[in-house]
Every structure is written in structure tokens, then in C-alpha cells.
Amino acid sequence: MKRKMKLSLIENSVSRKTTFTKRKKGMTKKLTELVTLCGVEACAVVYSPFNSIPEAWPSREGVEDVVSKFMELSVLDRTKKMVDQETFISQRIAKEKEQLQKLRDENHNSQIRELMFGCLKGETNVYNLDGRDLQDLSLYIDKYLNGLTRRIEILIENGESSSSLPLPIVANAAAPVGFDGPMFQYHNQNQQKPVQFQYQALYDFYDQIPKKIHGFNMNMNKDSNQSMVLDLNQNLNDGEDEGIPCMDNNNYHPEIDCLATVTTAPTDVCAPNITNDL
């Protein structure tokens, strides 16, 4: 199994020498392939820490030929494409970083796309996302909507240019059931809000009715027999028994008189109300 080599000087001298021999051979092989495939001229000179005599490829004479051509060029031409190890590694880092950023962006787009379809299918809940994801998702939906809109316009234009008959058929085509199911469920979630709103409206409507009803009831009590008045008293008594007398009376009867009379007798609470109404 191939082992990840650390890019630094090999500590072990024997291991370093062995690696040098192997890698030098591999490098010269690659140089040979390059020259053969592309039909170009090249040379290499390698000085080893272990050997004072340099290795020359293809040969000493070959190197001298290429070097002489190299020297004939102007200094500008020679140095334009010349790199040392420092420069070469820097260039390589920049290239790899660019590739990394491109791949990251692509991955992010894929994730947002999966997120969007997850929300549409009801698998993902929008309310669980954080701010950054929400913004990215919003931007992606905008982009996708633009694509959809443009596509729809193209199809409509094509439809208009042809006869009018095919267009209604396409418009009437039913969407597959498999897609409607999840989307319909999601659509219901939106519908819940109007329902709540209707509740508010109903409440406003109800708020006006009790006053009229109670007024009517009191009028009847005035004109009708004693039993109706007794029913009213019963309701009052039940109300008092259910709650905390002092607190409730404070809420509904700010007058001091009512508060004072609570401790004396329960029935007296009813009498002042009737008197006030009369």
C-alpha cells in the first residue's frame, strides 16, 4: 500500500540514498517520455550529495548542445519561464487552492440544491435552518426560479408560434400523482395561516353579539315573570363559586362599595347590580 510521504528531507541517510536512486530513475524516465511524445529537446543535470560526478541526461554532449542553445537566447527569454523550487511550489499552491475553491463552491451548490428539494418534499423543515443557510437557499431559489421562468416563456412563445390546439392540451395535462402528494402536504402548511386569520375575524364578529343578547335578556327579565330573574341569580352564584372572589370582583367591579360588601353577605352583591341596571 502506498504511504503518504512527508515533503521534507529524509532523515535516514541510507533511506535517503535509496530514494534518490529510485526517484532519479523515475524522473529521467518521465523526461524520456516527454521528449518522445512531443518531439522536443530537453536535458537534465543532477548533482547528488553522495557523488561528486553529476548525472547528465541524455548525455554530457547532449546536455552541452541544449545548454548552448539555451544560452543563445536573450536573458529575457531565458528567465521568462524559469522557475526555482520556491517559485514552482508557490505556483503549485496557488493552482491547488484555485481548484479547491472551485470544488468547494460546487459542493455547496449541490448541498443547497438537495436542501431546496428536501424542503419542497417536506423532508426538511425550513424552521430548523440557521441564517446563513436560509440566505443561501433564498438566493438559489431565486436562480432556479429565473431558470424556470425563462423556460416557461420559451415554451409559451413556441406554443404561440404553432397552432392554438396543442397548447390547451398541454395546459390540461395533469401532473404526476407522485409529485402532487408531498407538495400538496406542504401547501397545506401555508393554508393554515389563513385559517387562523379567519378565527380572528370570527372573534370580532362574536364580540358584538353578546352585548345585544344580554341587553335583550335584561329587557325580558324586566317584563317577564320572577323565574327568569332567579335564573340570572343562579348564574351569578356559580360564577362566584368557581373563582377567587376578591380578585374576580376587583377585575369586574372597580367600585369600592362592591369590595366592601363582599365580606358581609353574598346576596348583597347581586342587589346593587340590579339596582344599577334598573
Partner: peptide
């Protein structure tokens, strides 16, 4: 490969290559 050879083994290397367009590329 040349860069790795220099890093790992402390070698000194020079490579000169002429491109098909007769431009020169070199590493050292």
C-alpha cells in the same frame, strides 16, 4: 518530480526543456 527529489534527498537539479513552440521552460 524534480522538486520532490530536491526536497527529499537534498539534490541539486537543473532541467531545461524547449516546447514545441520553441519556447524554453526550465526548473532548477
Amino acid at each position: 518530480k524534480a522538486s520532490e527529489l530536491c526536497t527529499l534527498c537534498g539534490a541539486e537539479v537543473a532541467i531545461v526543456v524547449f516546447s514545441p513552440g520553441r519556447k524554453v521552460f526550465s526548473f532548477g
